[in-house]
Design a protein around this nucleic acid. Structure first.
Lengths: 213, 213
DNA sequence: ACGTCTCCTCGTACAGTGTTCGATTATCCG
DNA sequence: CGGATAATCGAACACTGTACGAGGAGACGT
């Protein structure tokens, strides 16, 4: 997908890959991943559905492009505020982007993240973490740990919230005796997601900081 | 889904929910999530496709059940080896289960994890982490952090490996100047996933241990 | 023995899906 | 103006999840 070639052809056509992706994001935001259809997408763009296949190889391409577009909204910090603040900054934005587009969690699975927007932010993460003293494989592992944590967090939160207000709470309460520890300390579903995310990230960065110096 | 009722009826029928789920897992392992079809699944079971809908409400139910079945393979440690070893033990098994069934990463997205197998293991995680001194919301956040990390790790690894041997490496090399830090320290794709996972988990547990005491 | 009821199976059908293919138009270069 | 090339489109195909209603099989009360 990211290997293909899409240089602008002659005479800017009214239908571009950018327009397709933009409308796809809007459609996904409006109706969710289950309702994204080539025909529906084309309708919103005022074209025939098969026309899309001239600009895009497959529906999966649209999803991949839309996903990377979401990460394009993540602000890359200016840097210089100290590695820890910069990482927290970047990762909070990353998480917010995923929460603002909940379908991104479903699209993420089993797919390599190779879009330019993702790579640019990953690169910043590497560069920032390098100033802890980590390097090479150990740096890569630390960067992956942070990225995996934020992605997992957003994923789980989206999943839990998709169930909000349902009978899940009652279900958990009913099986109180089956899951005693869970019942005692409270499932996170009703809790403060932001604080939990910040705390977990703190733990992880504590560990990384200790390892780096 | 987990709220519904499936007590055994009169006279054990040859087609049970368990058999359906078992065959679904086998089919997913064999051919991947894109090839799971009600008709194909029914064929492997020797029944008509619409018969499945008597045992299962929707195709999504099959996926959810299959997903929880995967987590049923995760061994719950005996406990008593110390909280840290126990957590590492549980989480390594969790990760291995997801890597052994790569489709699970794709199924996970945007879905709440409420299956009994997941809950039982989450409960163990809570109970084990409680012995660090954490409790209440702070315990829940720590548990979520660990779970999110392992899920994110498996997710990313599956995604990266699904691309193995493709032109991705060449693509990254070609954009060396765009992503300098990434190029310098090496992407993880070719690296040692197991070691990276262990190191990241170490970092996280270091941070949690320091907070708990 | 018989009707009845409940569990379970299945064939048919429908509305929709992603994608292919060939024909058709629009737009530029020489 | 001719012709190549960029872009659009309609029709068609194989396949999807699922609703619906018709049936079969065995247990039960009488």
């Amino acid at each position: 997908m990211w290997l293909r070639d899409d240089r602008p052809r002659r005479g800017a056509p009214p239908l571009t890959r950018e327009r397709i992706v933009g409308e796809a994001v809007a459609l996904l935001d409006d109706e969710g991943v289950g309702r994204l259809t080539m025909r529906r997408l084309a309708e919103r763009l005022g074209t025939g559905s098969t026309t899309l296949y001239w600009h895009v190889e497959t529906k999966d391409d649209v999803l991949e492009l839309a996903l990377d577009a979401v990460f394009g909204d993540v602000a890359v910090p200016e840097g210089g505020a100290g590695w820890r603040a910069d990482v927290i900054d970047l990762m909070s934005g990353w998480r917010r982007a995923m929460l603002d587009h909940p379908w991104s969690a479903a699209v993420l699975g089993g797919r390599p993240l190779l879009g330019p927007n993702v790579l640019a932010r990953t690169d910043f993460l590497y560069a920032t973490l390098a100033s802890t003293g980590l390097a090479g494989t150990r740096l890569a592992a630390a960067a992956y740990a942070v990225a995996n944590y934020v992605i997992g967090s957003a994923l789980m939160q989206v999943g839990a919230e998709s169930h909000a207000g349902s009978a899940a709470a009652g279900h958990l309460a009913r099986s109180r005796d089956l899951y005693p520890a869970l019942a005692e300390h409270g499932h996170l579903d009703a809790g403060d997601w932001d604080a939990a995310f910040a705390q977990g990230l703190d733990h992880l960065l504590d560990g990384i900081g200790a390892a780096g110096s």
